[in-house]
Design a protein around this nucleic acid. Structure first.
Lengths: 154, 154
DNA sequence: ATTATTGCAAATCGTTTGCAACTAC
DNA sequence: GTAGTTGCAAACGATTTGCAATAAT
């Protein structure tokens, strides 16, 4: 019987090493922050949160790490029309809690919805397959956003 | 028999006046550029294009106009993960030529697809209705993007 | 020991803004 | 004439980068 090694809870270390990267405190701290919330955090928010436990980690490192994580497909970079980029663990984004977004064009309010998703997902999978074949794209995520006016802004 | 006034080809003037804005040369020039292409142009690209015919129009005006047009729902602001915002006439975006996007995570290549759309649209309309009711959102557009690796980048 | 990673401060770059001149109405 | 609009240059803010110090392997 062989033990399944899980490393830092998700095999993070192995995943980094496998890509030729090192497993560092900064990276762990940032992934921890992202793991601890479902919010769409900006780089600066992540930085502030990381600072509470590791005051020595700099903002540049947060940016560099996020870039790396996006490249590794560990996090998803989102855009809601406010200027800053927002980040969310891909795992959170794509799991059974998969959700899409409703964005208010005036105040920027964002509503995450998970209802009506099953049908969407089913259809999207079909579409995904069709697109993959036709365009030879290897698709690994998708995003749906509805734009309009929220109750308050109408 | 009453004539239908069309103004500048789309009743632009009336549309602006109706919102309390003025119909100016800059605005016409920018809308003309957007009307002449299906591309997703950045503010600077629009500026460069406008410059060819109207060298006196400044970049700041382009930004201010685009902001106004987004607010008026005349244009749709898009984001493909390269830093700059990109713009497309809402009309182009939402008409029968309605399309969605495939975005390559590595090289940023964008493929517009129009196939597989009918089913999507049908479903989205249903979803839209459901979301509107539940969240009291007035939805007037949507966006679907698939992310992955294009043929060349795999 | 070797090489990736980091913090810091400076630089970059898309976008916004203050203001006086200008233009649509 | 009265606002809304514009060009210009300066300001802004998010993100990136050079570099010497530091940490992971």
């Amino acid at each position: 019987m062989v033990l399944r090694l899980r490393g830092e809870g998700h095999g993070w270390k192995g995943r980094f090493r496998g890509c030729g990267y090192r497993w560092t405190l900064s990276r762990k701290a940032i992934i921890d922050v992202l793991s601890s919330t479902k919010d769409h955090m900006s780089a600066e928010e992540i930085y502030n949160s990381v600072q509470k436990n590791y005051p020595s980690i700099g903002l540049a490192t947060v940016y560099r790490t996020l870039e790396l994580l996006v490249e590794m497909r560990v996090v998803m970079r989102l855009d809601f029309g406010d200027k800053r980029a927002r980040y969310e663990l891909a795992e959170t984004f794509s799991s059974k809690d998969h959700h899409h977004h409703l964005v208010c064009n005036r105040c920027g309010k964002i509503i995450e919805y998970t209802e009506f998703i099953e049908d969407e997902v089913e259809l999207l999978e079909k579409t995904e397959k069709g697109l993959s074949m036709k365009y030879h794209f290897k698709i690994d995520n998708h995003m749906i956003q509805f734009y309009g006016l929220c109750k308050a802004c109408q």
